[in-house]
Structures are given as C-alpha cells and as structure tokens.
C-alpha cells in the first residue's frame, strides 16, 4: 500500500499503516511489547504502563501512541525492562496474589509477565489490602484480591457487550472495579457469553466450576514464556 510508512523499534525498521498504534505495528512485525491492560479488540486503556516504550526519547504507552513515519522507538532496553519490572512488582504487592492456590495460575498474564521479566520477588513491601469476593452470580465470581484495575472488563462490557456492567469506583489506591447493581454481580445483566467474562488477565473474574479443568503444569505459560508465540510468528 502506498500510505504505509517506516519507523524503527530498537533500530529494526518496521512498517506501519495509518491508524496503527506502536504496539499494533510492532506485533505485525513480530516484535512483542509487554502489555497487561491492552487486549486486541478492545479500545486501548493506557492504564497499566507495562507497554511503556520510549518514542523520540520520551516515555509513552505503546498501546495508545499512534505509529508514525520516522519515529524512533526504544522497547527492549535495560532502562525500560527495569521500569516494567517495577510496574509489575508494584501490582503484585498492592493486591493479594496467592498464586499457589489461584485457579488462574499458569494462565495468568500478570504471573507470566513476572516470569518472563525474571522477578523472583518484588522489591517493595507487601501491603496485604483487605479486598472483597463477590460470588453472588450463579456462573461467575469476582475476587477483588486479585484485581489489578486494568479495566479490560469495563471496556469489554461497555464496548463489546453493550451493557456497562463494570465500572471503577473509589479513588487512588482505593480504586476498585464495581458493578451496576447494589446486590452485587448476581444482580447485574452479566451472562456467561459476555466478552467481559473472558478478558480478565488475572484471576479476578472467573467462571465458576471450571477452575482446574486443565491441571497446573499443562497451562498456557507453564513452559512457554508469554509473547513467544507472537515472536515466533514474526520470525
């Protein structure tokens, strides 16, 4: 196409098309940029900052920043890897992430990022916040302990399901995902086939009764680091 343009990521020349974000153009070139709140098919949230890259020397969220001709993007550098590690470590300490009994372990994107980034333990003290579990829905539950406030469920319910079941409530470190019924998730219009049910990157929104259908050890990221499928496709 005539309106494509070229720019570089870590010195490698890639092709972009108008309307693409840096993250999308990178994916098309087989370059994986770590991400957590971004999910294909949802509008970018720009919330988690795990996809932070440097564009023309300035930090930007790759999921939201438009690709453009001649941009110089830094992705896999020591400085940015370190920054991403810190973001992921902060997410671990500010929730209650008990991987050892979490149904999502092995399929969890937060855990997989920590594995790939080589985090043995966060450098920050654990906060052990008090969070709530909402099991009022017959088919789905929310475990607030594991929520990282990425907003995927909010965007999916609003933009894909057309329902707006989820929304942020409270502020700052008390921010959490609320639902649009006083009686909890069971009082909402959420159904099992909603996109919002399957977008959670962690174990905060899960279907009931299928938790360990696939055993630990045979799950998505148990042996394959996150992002490697995409990189292999591009290679």
């Amino acid at each position: 196409m005539s309106d494509t343009f070229r720019f570089t990521i870590d010195g490698v020349e890639v092709t972009g098309t108008p309307g693409q974000t840096i993250l999308q153009a990178a994916e098309a070139a087989g370059i994986w940029i770590p991400r957590l709140c971004y999910l294909e098919g949802l509008v970018p949230g720009g919330a988690c900052r795990v996809c932070t890259v440097k564009v023309q020397g300035r930090f930007q969220a790759a999921c939201a920043f438009p690709a453009g001709p001649g941009l110089v993007v830094e992705n896999d550098t020591e400085e940015i890897r370190e920054l991403r590690k810190q973001v992921v470590e902060m997410l671990f300490v500010e929730g209650n992430h008990f991987c050892m009994f979490c149904e999502k372990s092995g399929n969890c994107e937060l855990q997989a990022l920590a594995y790939r980034l080589g985090i043995a333990s966060p450098r920050y003290p654990y906060l052990f916040p008090v969070r709530q579990v909402d099991a009022s829905h017959p088919d789905v539950f929310i475990d607030g302990n594991r929520c990282i406030q990425c907003g995927r469920c909010i965007r999916a319910s609003r933009d894909v399901d057309g329902k707006g079941v989820f929304g942020f409530v409270e502020r700052s470190r008390d921010t959490r995902v609320g639902v649009d019924a006083r009686t909890g998730l069971g009082g909402t219009s959420l159904t099992l086939d909603d996109r919002a049910v399957t977008v959670c990157p962690v174990g905060a929104i899960l279907k009931k009764r299928v938790g360990f259908a696939v055993p630990i050890g045979e799950r998505l990221y148990d042996h394959r680091p996150i992002g490697t499928d995409l990189e292999r496709r591009g290679a």
Binding site: F92, N96, H97, F98, C99, M100, F101, A120, S121, P122, Y126, F128, P129, V130, R131
Partner: peptide
C-alpha cells in the same frame, strides 16, 4: 535464602492478614 512462597510473600498463612 527465602525458600518458597511463604518465606517470599507470606503464602497461605498470610491469608489471615485481612
């Protein structure tokens, strides 16, 4: 060496922390 999840992050016993 912090050996295991409990030593690293409190583990199952830390479920009582809330």
């Amino acid at each position: 060496v912090a050996l295991g999840d409990c030593a690293t992050m409190g583990g199952l016993p830390a479920m009582r922390n809330g």
